[in-house]
Design a protein around this nucleic acid. Structure first.
Lengths: 107, 107
DNA sequence: AATTTGTGCAGTCAAATAGTTGCGCTTATA
DNA sequence: TATAAGCGCAACTATTTGACTGCACAAATT
């Protein structure tokens, strides 16, 4: 496996998205993560490796166990790509913006 | 090519991301889009096909030309995935939220 | 009517991806 | 100290991807 360091590529795989959602709730070891899937531990381990190289996950060694936790910063790049388009559909965003204007005009 | 109908897969390719950004500015024909790349027209055409099947792009036939335009709704799914994590890093989001609270307490 | 232009579709091919198993290292535990 | 558990790395394989070329077809243009 070539392990591209590209956040968009990392997010493209549904298994990896599930891993992200799992780890977002609490730090987990690879074995614990793998128990949530029908794939082998090594396969999940490779997905974890990809996510780690993209800096979406972070390691914390505890004895022989390695706990992986989410680094939300890793997904900024994706959010920055989406952001300009969000304005085109998200009514809530527009409401927030109008609220901002009202608020600023009051000061 | 298998042409998976998966928005995350669609976004994973840098060429396709560039196409999205181009078309966001104005509707364009495949040939016009392809002129921005060093790839063949057919290659770009396939990328356009993938984006269209994911409903990120929309067609509008005009004579023998087909204009492709952005359907921002197509990227909602990605935004919805990112959204929960955004709160973990986006200071601006927190500021907006606090502004909201101030504004609401004033009314 | 003949030619050019804009598209999409089919087939081919190399490279990347996602899965597997096996192995070895390190750290707990019996 | 021997054994089991947790983990990463290496080697292998099937499938998918992303690029190419060639072709067919419809709509303008000459």
């Amino acid at each position: 496996m070539k392990l591209r360091r590209d956040v968009f590529q990392a997010i493209a795989d549904p298994t990896r998205r599930t891993i992200i959602s799992l780890v977002a709730l609490q730090a987990m070891t690879p074995t614990a993560i793998a128990e949530n899937f029908d794939y082998s531990r090594q396969t999940i381990s490779k997905h974890i490796q990809i996510l780690t190289e993209c800096e979406i996950l972070e390691q914390e060694q505890k004895g022989r166990e390695i706990y992986y936790q989410l680094n939300p910063n890793g997904m900024k790049e994706i959010a920055e790509f989406i952001e300009p388009f969000r304005k085109l559909w998200d009514d809530r965003f527009n409401k927030l913006e109008s609220v901002m204007k009202k608020y600023q005009s009051k000061k």
